[in-house]
Simulated assay, not measured.
Amino acid sequence: MPYLIPVFGGKLVVRGRPPPLATTGVLFMCAHRTLMDPLALTVALGRRVTAVIYSISRLSELLSPIRTARLSRVREVDTGHIAAELAWGDLVVCPEGTTCREPFLLRFSMLFAKLTDRIVPVAIDYKVGFFHPTTATGWKVMDPLFFFMNPRSAYEVTFLSQL
């Protein structure tokens, strides 16, 4: 992906410093603007991160270039899944549970805060000129296509704290 961004006329802007690689998993918490948020975070980090997913299609999951962990929305079951994923490595959670075009956060679940104290908040935003890269209804798998259809698209990833 990092090589594809300039080919399609886009750029990735990274602000702040990501935490160093650790022996235990770090939970990255970010707003959920598009389906590509975990992918942009992975590229900004320069290391593999597993993305927690709730309700994306199996096709999107199969096409994903990064590892995904599907949750069930059953609190007790999801607590075990997230804990197991954190033992395996870094994890990105978009606690809003859905994408949002608006410049504010939606109400979100605090389950992630009860599982670890190794949390790094990340601000994610995109800059586009014409096409919104968030499919309001329909196929979310189309989000990357709409993002790259913009002539000078940019993704901004800002690490808001260090561990």
Results as ranks from 00 to 15, higher is better:
Ser55Arg: 12
Ser64Thr: 10
Met149Thr: 13
Pro95Lys: 12
Asn150Lys: 11
Asp78Ile: 09
Pro144Val: 07
Val128Ile: 07
Lys140Phe: 11
Asp143Trp: 05
Glu85Trp: 06
Arg75Gly: 00
Leu39Tyr: 13
Ala51Ser: 13
Thr79Gln: 05
Pro38Thr: 15
Met1Gln: 15
Pro2Gly: 15
Leu145Val: 11
Leu86Trp: 09
Phe159Lys: 05
Ala84Phe: 15
Cys100Val: 04
Val43Leu: 11
Pro121Arg: 04
Glu85Thr: 12
Tyr3Asn: 13
Phe112Gln: 00
Thr99Trp: 00
Tyr54Ile: 14
Val49Gly: 04
Leu62Ile: 10
Phe131Asp: 10
Arg73Gly: 01
Arg75Val: 03
Ala87Ser: 10
Arg73Phe: 06
Leu106Ser: 04
Lys127Tyr: 02
Thr137Leu: 04
Met1His: 15
Thr42Asn: 14
Met142Ile: 12
Thr135Met: 09
Leu106Pro: 06
Ser109Arg: 02
Phe104Glu: 13
Ser57Lys: 07
Ser109Met: 00
Ile5Leu: 06
Ile119Glu: 02
Leu12Asn: 14
Val74Ser: 00
Thr24His: 03
Met29Asn: 08
Leu21Val: 14
Phe130Trp: 01
Ala31Leu: 04
Pro144Asp: 07
Arg33Pro: 04
Ala113Glu: 01
Leu163Ser: 12
Ser60Ala: 11
Thr50Gly: 05
Met29Glu: 10
Tyr155Thr: 11
Arg15Cys: 11
Thr134Lys: 09
Glu96Asn: 08
Arg33Asp: 06
Ile124Gly: 02
Thr116Ile: 01
Pro6Ser: 13
Arg67Glu: 12
Pro121Asn: 02
Ile56Ala: 06
Lys11Ala: 13
Pro133Cys: 03
Thr24Asn: 07
Asp143Pro: 00
Ser57Asp: 07
Leu12Trp: 11
Lys140Glu: 13
Gly25Val: 05
Arg101Ile: 02
Cys30Thr: 12
Thr34His: 09
Ile119Phe: 01
Pro103His: 05
Leu91Arg: 06
Glu85Phe: 04
Leu12Val: 11
Leu86Pro: 00
Leu39Asp: 11
Cys100Ser: 08
Leu59Pro: 01
Arg101Asn: 01
Val120His: 01
Phe148Thr: 12
Ser153Asn: 05
His81Arg: 15
Gly10Asn: 15
